[in-house]
Design a protein around this nucleic acid. Structure first.
Length: 170
DNA sequence: TCAGTGATTAGG
DNA sequence: CTAATCACTGAG
């Protein structure tokens, strides 16, 4: 049984959503109507203005304002001038949280998977609960999930740097 | 190990 | 306007 993840799913706190995303399927409808479905293998949680590693830690900016929307919207941003990062916003409106999708089967790495799936800035603000070109499905898989520290956030204070908010398929 | 790459951001 | 920074990757 396949169920598309809906608003209720993404409206919860990121620490409830993120651990359940590994094993779900990221679905993208391609240019010729080809739909690819890829199991999510690796994610990280970014949680509110108090989280020093979160882009919202210094308040709302033009780039991060989609994070202040209700859950289910896509937050894309360019890093190092080259790589697009795919995030899904969580929680209720005005609470800035998001999940970074770090890996899918055969394409580990947040910059690698967006390149493979042709995801770029045009997806910023897309609603994965309603969109016809990007959405997420639950295929009923029961997956063992490991956890660890988030990657490449050395600029954050030790508490936030060391907290284990990365979740991945074992 | 390390350079590439350009949008974003804070600060003047 | 300027300059520093960056939730990364692949080549060597």
């Amino acid at each position: 049984m396949i169920i598309r993840l809906n608003r209720d799913y993404f409206s919860r706190d990121v620490l409830e959503v993120a651990p359940t995303l590994p094993g779900k399927f990221l679905c993208v409808s391609g240019k010729e109507g080809i739909t690819g479905k890829h199991m999510i293998t690796d994610v990280e949680a970014y949680r509110g203005e108090e989280d020093e590693a979160c882009h919202a830690s210094r308040g709302m900016t033009h780039r991060n304002k989609i994070m202040y929307n209700k859950g289910g919207f896509v937050y894309m941003y360019l890093i190092y001038g080259i790589y697009w990062m795919l995030n899904i916003v969580t929680a209720e409106k005005s609470i800035p949280q998001a999940v970074l999708i770090r890996g899918i089967t055969n394409y580990e790495g947040p910059g690698r998977l967006t390149k493979f799936l042709n995801l770029d800035g045009t997806y910023y603000g897309e609603d994965v609960c309603e969109s016809e070109r990007i959405w997420i499905e639950d295929h009923g898989l029961n997956i063992d999930v490991g956890r660890g520290k988030r990657i490449s956030i050395d600029y954050a204070g030790s508490y936030w740097r060391d907290i284990e908010w990365r979740y991945y398929v074992i």
